[in-house]
Design a protein around this nucleic acid. Structure first.
Length: 578
RNA sequence: GCCCUUGUAGCUCAGUCGGUAGAGCACCACCAUGGUAAGGUGGGGGUCGCCGGUUCGAAUCCGGCCGAGGGCUCCA
């Protein structure tokens, strides 16, 4: 942990060194802020022209020279007026000085030719910075103080470490991230595509991607049924009164696709499934005996995300939520929450996510629903996480206005966090739609309503899966589980026979009868990350056996078909990685 | 939405000072029948994102639009 503090000092000091280098090149540059961040640092500048890659090299060289000149970082305290005088040509600094609270100390740091308004801390001297352990990564636009109405500055991002080896490791990590990029793998493995000409942010699932989706959805449906849910299907558009009642037109209109007019009525494409599920609830009078109702739907919704926010499968405009709504009595709430959380964890584990952290968000300032309800619901959430023994953080006041929630974030194979599951109480919709149930005593009462999605959206979940497995899916999810590769044409008929048998036994198999040589076929199957290859020639044909080549290069020769099929089935059933 | 970068064949990318396009892979055909990561030869395929401007002439220069990538929440 001492290293963490040291690193922060190093990174923050690097930012100052970078500012000095930039000022050498652009003496009139306006400098803004330059903090240490995760893995590195940045500094924002207002410059007369845009920076290029070439500039980054230039700046890097100057930074190295500054570091090698062994400048001390000297801290001093100045008065407000002194500070204003020192930075009289730096309008952003003046703004910062004005923002400093009356009575608090104003400190400056100086290293050689550069002085910055700064609360520190810094290293003692540039001697402590390793000129071979940092790298400038990119230039990006950033608003002054992050506000859209402010001028756009140029931000230079850099990364800095204690040693060149640490830098190397970090750059390798970045390269790994790039290799796993689901957009790249989606193309290479022929899983999905997006088509600007047909509408940005809308996903096309190719056959190989669709097979994975079906494996996910089949599993999802089976498990939901086993766990007491009913499947429902609801429309994709609804009249405006639905969205007025739900409040979406009031709070959410910006993100909805615009209205369609028909028969003097306005229709909207759904951005959420909830109001439709409520329609079903209201279709008949509900008794406490009918509750809980657990209704699940793979519901496709459309939201008009800002153009700049779209990102592959991770942020799209049309997506399918693995949605469910639970309507229950107040008495049932505790048990339902426990169950939802247990079920979520089971689902996430099944997909190979075992590092899970929970975030509970509580009542914000502006909210609906009585305090007691919020407290009861929030307590139920806490009890549930504690019972499951997963670590959690509480985001006080971070809930939606309509109820507290719990989000589950998983860590993927290379340690990145992704939010998947969410369980949210809703004190708003039951009120707005005047939902009721008749209780034991014959009086009408308001049911609790819980929204939950375990995978989040199928599209985004797919993106996370691709990156988690780097495209090498475990057999139960692999689009092609088995590639049958004949050594020469004489084994083609045997290959076809094997393919037919495998498919009939429920496996996803395909034989490669192309003109290529066996070596090329193996290469292709390997590149498509198919877990099992059956290499068959005259030998196997004669003996009725198969030779198995695994994705990892290992090999099992001369197995009987039955032996292979049962081993494969066991692997698929276990959902294990190969 | 805003800033920077970017948009050439299905994919990955070349294309120098403006003179109406190239490679590899993929695809198709033929030859080769090959035991664990690319066999050979030949062929087809692009109004260079879209619209407009400058020019004798634009993939190349200029403007606008559309899309994609990075960033815009780490705070003197």
């Amino acid at each position: 942990m001492a290293d963490e503090a040291k690193l922060e000092k190093i990174r923050h000091s690097m930012a100052h060194v970078m500012a000095e280098a930039v000022l050498e090149i652009f003496p009139d540059a306006q400098i803004a802020i330059g903090p240490a961040i995760d893995n590195g640092f940045y500094y924002d500048f207002d410059l007369p022209r845009s920076l290029s890659e070439q500039d980054l090299e230039d700046i890097t060289e100057r930074m190295k020279a500054i570091i090698k000149s062994n400048k001390e970082f000297k801290r001093s305290v100045v008065t407000r007026d002194e500070a204003k005088e020192m930075f009289k040509d730096q309008k952003y600094k003046l703004e910062l000085i004005d923002a400093i609270e009356e009575g608090s100390e104003i400190s400056i740091y100086n290293q050689g030719g550069f002085t910055d308004l700064c609360r520190g801390p810094h290293v003692e001297s540039t001697k402590e910075l390793n000129p071979e352990a940092f790298k400038l990564l990119s230039v990006a636009g950033a608003y002054w103080r992050g506000k859209e109405t402010n001028p756009m500055l140029q931000r230079i991002y850099g990364t800095a470490w204690l040693t060149p080896k640490d830098l190397r490791l970090y750059l390798d990590h970045l390269a790994d991230i790039e290799k796993r990029d689901h957009r790249k793998l989606g193309k290479e493995l022929d899983l999905f595509s997006l088509h600007e000409e047909a509408g940005p942010g809308l996903v096309y699932w190719h056959p190989r991607g669709a097979r994975i989706r079906q494996a996910i959805e089949n599993f999802w449906r089976e498990e939901h049924y086993k766990n007491g849910y009913e499947m429902i299907y609801t429309p994709h558009v609804g009249k405006s009164w639905l969205w007025e009642t739900s409040g979406h037109l009031g709070f959410y209109k910006e993100s909805m696709y615009p209205k369609m007019e028909m028969d003097n009525m306005d229709y909207y494409v759904k951005p959420m499934n909830c109001p439709f599920h409520i329609m079903i609830y209201q279709n008949s009078k509900k008794s406490y005996r009918d509750l809980p109702c657990r209704w699940a739907e793979l519901g496709t919704v459309y939201r008009y995300e800002k153009a700049g926010a779209l990102h592959g499968l991770m942020r799209v405009r049309g997506f399918t939520q693995d949605d469910a709504h639970i309507f229950c009595t107040p008495d049932q709430m505790d048990a339902e929450i426990m169950e939802v959380l247990r079920f979520s964890l089971y689902m996430l584990h099944s997909f190979g996510f075992n590092d899970i952290h929970a975030y509970i968000s509580t009542k914000p300032e502006k909210s609906v629903g009585e305090q007691e309800k919020w407290d009861a619901a929030t307590e139920a959430l806490k009890r549930a996480v504690e019972k499951e023994g997963i670590s959690y953080d509480v985001d006080e006041g971070g809930g939606a206005f309509y109820g507290p929630k719990i989000d589950l974030k998983i860590k993927d194979a290379i340690g990145r966090e992704w939010q998947l599951s969410t369980v949210q109480f809703d004190f708003n919709l039951p009120e707005r739609f005047k939902l009721t149930f008749v209780d034991k005593d014959g009086t009408e009462k308001r049911p609790y309503m819980i929204h939950r999605a375990l995978l989040g959206s199928i599209e985004r979940f797919f993106g996370v899966l691709i990156e988690h497995y780097a495209g090498a899916f475990p057999p139960w999810l692999s689009p092609d589980q088995v590639a049958v590769i004949p050594v020469a044409e004489s084994a083609n008929d045997y290959a076809c026979e094997l393919e037919r048998k495998l498919r009939q036994d429920g496996f996803r198999a395909k034989s490669d009868l192309s003109n290529d040589r066996m070596n090329a076929k193996i290469r292709k199957a390997q590149q498509m990350k198919i877990p099992y290859m059956l290499i068959i020639g005259d030998k196997e044909k004669e003996n009725g056996t198969v030779s198995v080549r695994y994705r990892n290069g290992k090999q099992d020769n001369g197995l009987s078909y039955e032996a292979f099929a049962s081993a494969l089935k066991a692997k698929i059933d276990s959902k294990e990685q190969l």
